[in-house]
Each structure stands twice: as structure tokens, then as C-alpha cells.
């Protein structure tokens, strides 16, 4: 009997430690300067809201703030799919009605990224929308988060929150120049975009919600390295324009100097400045 009691103690010990650990990690997440932590701690007030996947990170906040004198908030994240982005934007609009402008890089409507959704488990207690989305799309992970609170923090999003615990994340941008070898191989490299109707519908609903709240939305395509083939980009652009009724500002070939790029699809800090100058010239931040 005593032997059985020892094994009954194991789940008790596990859950006690798990809940305590989960609570401590939650506190760390709340204290972070990471974008989503700030969003849910009401510390992300801005005039311009920026959105995209890893390509959206080139909407470099410090430079935009420097030239526009407006406060910005960038919700972009590597591989961020539009359905998660919609939940984040709607949460943002609920909490920060002062926002005036929303800029979205539409290539984030490319493909779904359900594994990344589990990264937002760390914020499910703050966002019913994220909670429902993860429940609907990643049920096993959602249950994992219910059983173990430590599991909610088992992801890169929380690791970034820890990394930015004592420093700003606004400087998050590629800080390298594409290699010569990659430039030589440019013509051999291609990327095939998916035109995903589900994600385009999520974008459409995000735009509609923004417009209802008086937020001006701008849709853009950030530059790619010239010579790099992106299949289906025109189809995606057409589908987005048709669904949203907005014109997509297409900058795909607007920068030709390879030193502006960190790789085929991402601008580096220098390239980002040139891109932002073009956006400003076209009145995106007005």
C-alpha cells in the first residue's frame, strides 16, 4: 500500500511544481518588453500598427518613429500566419482605440503555420481569441497547455519574451548582408507562395474590423532581391485586392542593390530605411 502511495504522490508533486513554475514564468512574460507581452499589459500604445511575418520585421520601428514622429507598434513575427495576426490585431484594437494607421505586408497570407500558434499558448489567459484559435486548430497542444502550465511556455515566443525581459524588441531586424554565394545562386532560388483563401478571408475581416474602428489600412508587398523568383505573387496580390477592395502597394522590385538585403526575402537595416522612405513618400504613414 505504501508503494502505491508513493506513486500517488508523483502527480501531486508534478502538478504543484508545474503550477508554481507556470505562475513564475507567466510573471516573467508579463514583465517583458516583448511586443505581445506589451500588447497584453497595455503598454503598446501607438499611432501606427505594423503587421507581417518575418518580412514585416523590415518595417523598422525606430526609423519610422524618427521620420514621422509618431509612435509605432510592430506585431510582426517570423512565420506569423494571418489567422493569428487577426486575433492579435483585434485584441490590439480593443485595447488601443487611438491607433490611426495599420500597415500590413500581404505576403503573410501565404500559408498557415499551426505549429507557431502553440507559441501563443503563453498568452491564452489574456486573449480569448487566441485561446479559441489554438483550441480549434491545435487541440492537442491546447490540451497540453491545460494539463501543464509549464508547457504553455515551451516555445520560441516565450523564449523571445525572456530575451526581451530587460530590453526593447523594437530593434529586431536582420543585421547582415546577403553572401556573395547566395547572390550568385539567386536565379536558381525560388519561393512558391500559396494563395490561401482562408487566410485571405482572415485579412479581409481584419481590414473590415479596422475600418469600422476608423483605422486607415495600407497593404504592401515589401521588396525581394531582384532576380529571386516568387511564384504566385501576382495571384496573391489580385486575390487580396479583390477580397479587401484596397490597392496593394507593390515594392517587390523597388530596391536593386543586393547590399540592402539580408537574404533573398528579407531586407536588412539599411534596406529597411530605403523601403520606409518609399512608404513615407507614398503617404502610407500620413
Amino acid at each position: 500500500m505504501q508503494k502505491v502511495v508513493w506513486y500517488l504522490l508523483l502527480p501531486l508533486a508534478f502538478f504543484a511544481g508545474d503550477r508554481l513554475g507556470g505562475y513564475l514564468l507567466q510573471k516573467q512574460s508579463e514583465r517583458s518588453h516583448f511586443r505581445y507581452s506589451r500588447l497584453y499589459q497595455n503598454k503598446a500604445k501607438a499611432d501606427i500598427l505594423l503587421l507581417g511575418n518575418s518580412r514585416g520585421l523590415c518595417l523598422y520601428q525606430p526609423y519610422i518613429e524618427e521620420i514621422t514622429h509618431k509612435k509605432t507598434c510592430n506585431l510582426s513575427y517570423n512565420g506569423l500566419p494571418m489567422d493569428a495576426a487577426k486575433a492579435l490585431v483585434l485584441d490590439y484594437l480593443d485595447r488601443y482605440p487611438e491607433v490611426k494607421t495599420l500597415v500590413i505586408d500581404v505576403t503573410m497570407c501565404d500559408r498557415e503555420n499551426d505549429p507557431l500558434l502553440t507559441g501563443f499558448l503563453a498568452y491564452t489567459d489574456k486573449s480569448e481569441r487566441l485561446n479559441t484559435l489554438i483550441h480549434n486548430k491545435e487541440l492537442k497542444a491546447w490540451w497540453g497547455g491545460q494539463v501543464s502550465h509549464l508547457f504553455r511556455y515551451n516555445n520560441e515566443i516565450f523564449q523571445r519574451a525572456l530575451y526581451y525581459r530587460n530590453k526593447s524588441d523594437e530593434d529586431w531586424l536582420l543585421d547582415r548582408v546577403i553572401t556573395e554565394a547566395q547572390i550568385i545562386d539567386t536565379s536558381k532560388s525560388t519561393y512558391e507562395l500559396d494563395v490561401n483563401p482562408y487566410l485571405i478571408r482572415q485579412l479581409q475581416e481584419t481590414i473590415e474590423a479596422s475600418l469600422e474602428k476608423g483605422v486607415q489600412a495600407h497593404l504592401v508587398i515589401a521588396p525581394y532581391l531582384p532576380g529571386f523568383t516568387v511564384e504566385n505573387l501576382d495571384n496573391l496580390k489580385k486575390a487580396v485586392e479583390k477580397a479587401t477592395g484596397l490597392q496593394v502597394l507593390d515594392y517587390r522590385n523597388s530596391l536593386v542593390d543586393p547590399t540592402f538585403f539580408g537574404d533573398y526575402m528579407h531586407l536588412n537595416k539599411e534596406g529597411s530605411r530605403h523601403f520606409i522612405d518609399m512608404l513615407r513618400k507614398d503617404g502610407v504613414f500620413d
Binding site: D18, G21, S148
Partner: peptide, 13 residues
């Protein structure tokens, strides 16, 4: 109990 719990916490995290 301590070691088993610790491994389970590490697995969860």
C-alpha cells in the same frame, strides 16, 4: 518523486 517530477517538468518545458 523529486527526480521523476523534475524530469516531467523538464519534458513539459
Amino acid at each position: 518523486i523529486a527526480l521523476f517530477s523534475m524530469v516531467l517538468w523538464l519534458l513539459a518545458f
